[in-house]
Design a protein around this nucleic acid. Sequence first.
DNA 1: AAGAGTGTCAACCGCGGCAGA
DNA 2: GTCTGCCGCGGTTGACACTCT
Length: 282
Amino acid sequence: MGRRPCCSKEGLNRGAWSAWEDKILRDYIKTHGEGKWRDLPKRAGLKRCGKSCRLRWLNYLRPDIKRGNISHDEEDLIIKLHKLLGNRWSLIAGRLPGRTDNEIKNYWNTNLRKKVKSQQSNLEKCIDKSKANKAPKGDSVEAAARVDDQFHPVIRTKAVRCTKVYLPLQQDDMVADHSLEPMCNDSPSKWVPQDGDPSNILIDFDMKELVLRFEDDFFQPCVQDCQNSGNSADGNVGGGSIWSNEAMQEDWRGRVIQEPNVASKLRTLATFLDSEEEWQEK
DNA sequence: AAGAGTGTCAACCGCGGCAGA
DNA sequence: GTCTGCCGCGGTTGACACTCT
């Protein structure tokens, strides 16, 4: 049994919307409000499918929409949110007032994907170099490499804020390195090994703070080092990738979903992201 | 000047989630 | 608990604009 199409395609207009179609739709929604998209075209007298009307309204006609000129701040935010959420364009758009998921998706595909990819490859070069050189402990490049190896779970905890998370970290590494301690609001004593397995640590702390510190302070030496050594890293810490590669990122997402004590649905994440008080309380 | 190649973005499509019957 | 229909999402397409040769 096949799925019933959303509407009959016969006799319907397709492709670009004309000015008068826009006017009809805008006037209709102004009078009757949004919703009931399936019936809207008939009631409004439009030869369009309901889905098409909805899309046109949400992505183009809505009065609160900002179009074009994505600012540097917005771009930065898109990159950071994309690190956390992946291609969840509607969630990302929800954090950018006046921007639509379609616009952000297009902007990502045409501008940011390449940009982020090149920064990612610079990061990999940087880390490879540091590993090859066996820099002494404490060296910024080595430290950044260790961050890349170990601290991607920090971002993971942000994605499931306020939820206790099992992290596959080596506790010894974390505590022994004093440069990492300020990144955690809670004292390391609150990091409790789970089930006697030292590689699983239960953590529950302020994740936003962690991410900011990670991106803005701790990561900077790596970028500077890249520049000093002739590797261009664009100097954009916020835009630098936290992942060594896409596989690592995918692996991270998969494991989050499977963890028993972690919010198992991304809708939970959406709720969290929509909670302004929580977001700003720290 | 013109044709080819590339980029951009509005619109379409199919699927999955969810609410209500 | 199951079914049905609507809505919203993310991936993809294709028309148009722009740049290069």
